[in-house]
Nucleic acid binder design. Structure first.
Length: 725
DNA sequence: TCCATTGACGTTTTT
DNA sequence: CGTCAATGGA
């Protein structure tokens, strides 16, 4: 068979990776170096050249999107069905294993996945029931604690320092929470991974089966693996499996949620004879952008080391705009985008990248004002919307009445006279007898615990659920979905909301029915023996869907730096480049390499740009209702000054005038200002005040001063007779 | 049960 | 400043 097409279009390092024989491979793939391509060609190589059965390959990614892309591209390249290949996310694969081996894993067949919102609600419930002060013991923190522990592979009994009161309290909550989950057959995201790991640990026969079968492991985004994922890979590989990992330690930006960059280094230590290959040729950005990015990332210690280069052009210098404030920053960026579009380029070639989600607002305002279409990434996704989750909760309850999270959610939605008091009674009963809410409710009815009216209401609710289940068991998924919505009267609950809101909710419910109708169970779920309903519910939990329905017209792209990873755009704006915002204050203060992670984030952001990179910072930024005077980000100083070109506001424009500000190494020949922003001054008539702003130039410079007594005033500098204090 | 007001909080997010 | 959640009165 002619396999030249697998290597022909690759550079030398890429070929070496794709065709590596024997042993383990670590590919250090710089940004834009063709990482995905290498992974896919490797997959094809194993099958076509090494004649590995597709059944013997496991390819793992972090997101569903990446998994889907890999399957599709592999299919195109191989021209055969990719169905037997195991390609998926860590969570997806763990889920599949648990479905196939639910007994060995100690789970009920009808186990359900708990998403993070469900998890948090359940924890809030538990903390309340324990009679603890929610202000002191926030559910969010409990969630963080539990997930972090699970990510480290720890069960409550493994956690030491029980003498530490805070830790021991969280361990206590962890225990109770886990009991709830076990009783109701609920599995949170971290639990999927932990259980899958424990399955192998405790069931050598199962592990052995997969070790024999899955001889080739391909792992994408290896720098994002956490402790349990790493342990899982090691265990599956055993002494015979061959592991091919691709990653970039310089792009590790998820340390805060448990990812361990160290895994990249540990891989060389823990696996014998690792061949390390660096992909350093970049096919994305201009030389200038790469030089600046390289210079920046060189400030990090403990790197594996890499230097990106390109055979392409130097390109334009990076531009740096020192905005007067965040308004000016947004105005400037939107103006430049407008120019770009006017020059015949596309809006969706432009991306605005920021550190925190809150920063998007102003840009949206200005884009709206100019009528430029935009799209904000992130935000709530389809299967996370309230109404969708409500409807799904009913479906979950049909499938597994012991699902406490679902029960809590819909027992009184729409209101059916089951108030807080009644629900408390059920909870109490559940707690005392170690039952699920559903079981406890039944017991309460039998024992006549409720007042007559409440008892009737609870009974009616349970009859409703049972009734639906019995009547609809052989309906199609779409009809079941519609039936559940109709019979639960869920829509009456939303009709009390403002009409606009109601309409969206109903629309989303219709879309949910459509989704159920159109749902085709993935082959691998069928293989794992799932029912269609099980498959659909897992799909909803594991793949929360897109933020919005496809609205892919030519839009300016806006997103946080984190969500930009893996993407590329001709024109990139990196905004809010101020110390305190980026790098974020919290990261600067905290020890433990947080600053280095911020720097990697900047590196990720810069390397998104293909042609043109534009950095912006504001000298004054309003945050939390306060004006802050900002220093430009230290990251700007870490780039070579000769690659950066200061953009100055055009002279005479009615734009606030900027005083000089040291920007390490940059030639900043701005006209010297008599006062600095934030300087305390005194005026013969108005008294003491603070300089807020300047405007105009030469003799026309006006100054904005906030006086302690007289308030804020604009004064012509030449006449104002201000004195510095 | 519902709306309105008040208060606390403020980094990043996928599964 | 702006958001979201919780509380409390009608």
């Amino acid at each position: 068979m002619d396999v030249s097409h697998l290597l022909d279009e690759l550079n030398e390092a890429q070929r070496e990776a794709v065709s590596a024989e024997n042993g383990h491979v670590l590919v250090l793939a710089g940004a834009g170096s063709g990482k995905t391509r290498v992974l896919i060609h490797r997959l094809a190589w194993l099958i076509q050249v090494n004649h590995v059965s597709p059944l013997g390959i496991l390819a793992v990614t972090f997101t569903n999107k990446a998994a889907g892309e890999m399957r599709e591209r592999a299919g195109n390249l191989l021209q055969v069905s990719t169905r037997p290949l195991w390609i998926g996310t860590f969570h997806g694969i763990a889920h599949r294993l648990l479905r196939m081996h639910f007994k060995e894993a100690g789970l009920p067949e009808a186990f359900q996945i708990l998403d993070s919102e469900d998890q948090q609600r359940l924890l809030r419930r538990i903390i309340r029931d324990e009679g603890m002060d929610e202000a002191h013991w926030p559910a969010r923190q409990a969630q963080w604690f539990i997930n972090a522990r699970k990510d480290e592979g720890e069960r409550p009994e493994h956690i030491e320092h029980l003498d530490h009161p805070v830790t021991s309290t969280w361990v206590h909550i962890y225990k109770i929470y886990q009991d709830y989950c076990n009783r109701g057959g609920l599995v949170d995201f971290a639990e999927l991974l932990l259980r899958a790991h424990e399955l192998w640990l405790e069931q050598p026969a199962v592990l052995d089966h997969y070790r024999k079968r899955l001889q080739h492991l391909l792992i994408d985004e290896f720098q994002d693996t956490n402790a349990i994922q790493y342990a899982w890979i090691r265990m599956l590989a055993g002494n015979t499996g061959r592991v091919f990992v691709v990653g970039d330690d310089d792009q590790s930006i998820y340390g805060w949620r448990g990812a361990k960059v160290e895994n990249v280094q540990h891989f060389q230590r823990d696996f014998p004879d690792v061949r390390t290959i660096r992909l350093e040729q970049n096919y994305r950005s201009t030389g200038t952008i790469l030089d600046a990015a390289n210079a920046l990332i060189r400030h990090n210690t403990s790197r594996m080391g890499k230097n990106l280069w390109t055979a392409g052009e130097k390109g334009q210098p990076i531009s740096l705009y020192a905005a007067f404030n965040e308004q000016d920053e947004a105005r400037y960026v939107v103006d430049r985008i407008e120019q770009w579009i006017d020059s015949g380029r596309r809006a969706d070639d432009c991306a605005i990248l920021y550190r925190t989600t809150a920063q998007s607002r102003l840009f949206e305002e200005y884009l709206l004002r100019k009528n430029i279409p935009y799209r904000v990434y992130g935000g709530q996704r389809f299967f996370e919307r309230t109404e969708v989750k409500d409807a799904l909760a009913y479906l979950r309850l049909l499938h597994n009445p012991n699902d406490d999270a679902a029960m809590e959610r819909v027992i009184n939605k729409p209101t059916r006279a089951i108030g807080q008091k009644t629900v408390s009674l059920i909870r109490l009963q559940a707690r005392e007898s170690g039952l699920t809410l559903w079981q406890a409710a039944r017991e309460c009815i039998e024992q006549g615990v409720f007042a007559t009216r409440a008892g009737t209401a609870v009974k009616a609710f349970m009859d409703l659920v049972v009734g639906i289940r019995e009547r609809m068991s052989d309906w199609t998924l779409g009809n079941q979905m519609q039936g559940v919505i109709d019979e639960s009267q869920l829509t009456t609950h939303y009709e009390k909301e403002p009409p606009e809101r109601t309409e969206t909710r109903l629309e989303n419910l219709r879309e949910l029915v459509n989704a159920a109708d159109a749902f085709a169970m993935p082959a691998e779920d069928a293989d794992a023996g799932l029912t269609e309903l099980q498959s659909f519910l897992s799909h909803a939990a594991l793949e929360a869907g897109d933020t919005q329905a496809e609205n892919w017209e030519d839009c300016v792209q806006m997103m946080t730096l984190h969500s930009a990873k893996g993407l590329e755009f001709p024109l990139v704006f990196l905004v809010g480049m101020e110390d305190g915002l980026f790098p974020h204050q919290r990261s600067v203060e905290e020890a433990g390499g947080r600053l280095e992670e911020e720097r990697r984030l900047a590196y990720v952001g810069m390397t998104r740009a293909r042609e043109m990179l534009c950095l912006c910072y504001a000298e004054v930024r309003r945050m939390h209702g306060q004006e802050n005077y900002c220093r430009p980000s230290r990251f700007i100083d870490e780039m070579p000054a000769e690659l950066i070109e200061e953009v100055r506001p055009s002279i005479g424009a009615s734009r606030p005038y900027r005083p000089a500000r040291p920007t390490g190494g940059l030639s900043m020949e701005s006209p010297s200002a008599p006062f600095k922003l934030g300087q305390h001054v005194i005026h013969p008539k108005f008294g003491e005040g603070t300089v807020l702003a300047f405007e105009g130039s030469g003799d026309n410079v006006r100054v904005h001063v906030n006086f302690l007594d007289a308030g804020a005033k604009w004064l012509v500098l030449a006449y104002a007779n201000l004195q510095a204090l």
